[in-house]
Design a protein around this nucleic acid. Structure first.
Lengths: 218, 218
DNA sequence: ATGCTCTAGTTGACACTGTCTACCAGTTCA
DNA sequence: TGAACTGGTAGACAGTGTCAACTAGAGCAT
């Protein structure tokens, strides 16, 4: 039972068609939006019968959940990479913290589609208990590590509280930018840029206060 | 052309069936989610032919846009009401500001469905140029007024910058709560509550700094 | 070799969707 | 009276997710 899969396929991370489905699904979403995603369309793009994808995904939502998972992992490694300078050395903690914020907003700006999928889409029910939670946790943990470097926390709960504030504040900015709210609220591009810079400086000051707290402790 | 509509219907805000559609649509979304919304289902709930709603909405997306607009208006008045104390008198500016934050989070907590519709759903294309922008602006303006009371700004641009920070920070919190991220990140309920309180106190301090800035100026 | 079983495809059907067209009963009004 | 418009109906069409049945081929035990 369960004969060995093609090892060549395994090296690239899965069955060829399965991978192709995930890729074309992302393309399809890019073209017609999440709600416009259709399994049959994906199949059509691959010149394959409308039922072929079902051999690799139990349902449309399972496919979507997998797409989101990939995004989360990509996002997490993107965040983690931001800590290192180009030459591979590490930056001072506060700089690394700022870099993380930039990486977050930069990813959201460069990959709006993926960002929306991860954080502004109601995850399909299949996401629950399907491992998506741990993948999003991985991204959050990067933030926790950086904060820990800024100021060694006594308890992880205390650190997570700070992390959650930074996370939600940055997410708020990214989310407002994503939603075109700036446009709806008739901010000009330069005003929008100024508003983002302003908000970031507010967060920076909050983090600086956290860092000061550490020095006070010592 | 355009004969007078039934004045009785006008008093209640529109054609009966039109209003009923909007109400049942919200129910349907509550039952099966936004993506599960179906015009035919709405019609079925009203014991009416599957084409009847088309006499009042050009398309499913037009209906959805109208539902969202109602939510935005309801939300804006909810925010605005939060300024007044029970006896109708006005609170001091900083208290009114805090009350606004509570009202925002309170609405999101009490009406998660509506909140998601307004701020975590990709608005249908019909929303553009359909007036939705001005409705969301109305909600944002409440925040601007409160800030103005805390500290008279020289320029509206400067005030809007502060407003955008508070807005995005509060939205970040609400949005994180909505997305069940707390659960995914395995925060216990009490930890989550503490995290929210922590984040709000960070915002409060930022606003207090704004208020101090005013006193420095004088 | 001969089957057996499992995999990854196929085609066909079903119920359901949004939306187009055509039809019809009233009401308003010239 | 009759034309125009309003708010409703029924039917058809293409497109969807998904179930069921089928098939070509690979791997393996006998």
């Amino acid at each position: 039972m369960e004969p060995n899969r093609d090892p060549k396929a395994k090296r690239t991370g899965g069955t060829p068609l399965r991978e192709a489905c995930l890729q074309k699904a992302l393309e399809a979403i890019r073209d017609k939006g999440v709600e416009g995603l259709s399994l049959r369309d994906v199949a059509r793009r691959l010149n394959v019968s409308h039922q072929a994808p079902y051999k690799h995904f139990a349902s449309k939502d399972h496919l979507l959940a997998e797409v989101i998972r990939r995004c989360l992992r990509d996002f997490a490694t993107h965040l983690r990479r931001s800590g290192d300078a180009d030459d591979g050395t590490h930056q001072p903690p506060l700089d690394a913290m700022r870099a993380l914020g930039s990486a977050y907003l930069g990813y959201a700006a460069a990959n709006p589609l993926e960002y929306r999928l991860m954080f502004m889409t109601t995850w399909p029910n299949e996401a629950r208990g399907f491992g998506l939670a741990s993948d999003s946790r991985a991204a959050f943990d990067v933030l926790g590590e950086r904060l820990q470097a800024v100021r060694p926390y006594d308890s992880s709960a205390e650190r997570d509280r700070d992390a959650m504030f930074v996370w939600s504040a940055i997410h708020g900015i990214a989310s407002v930018l994503q939603s075109e709210a700036m446009h709806y609220l008739s901010f000009s591009p330069s005003e929008a840029e100024a508003a983002v810079a302003h908000a970031r400086s507010m967060i920076d000051r909050a983090i600086a206060r956290v860092s000061d707290r550490q020095e006070d402790d010592q």
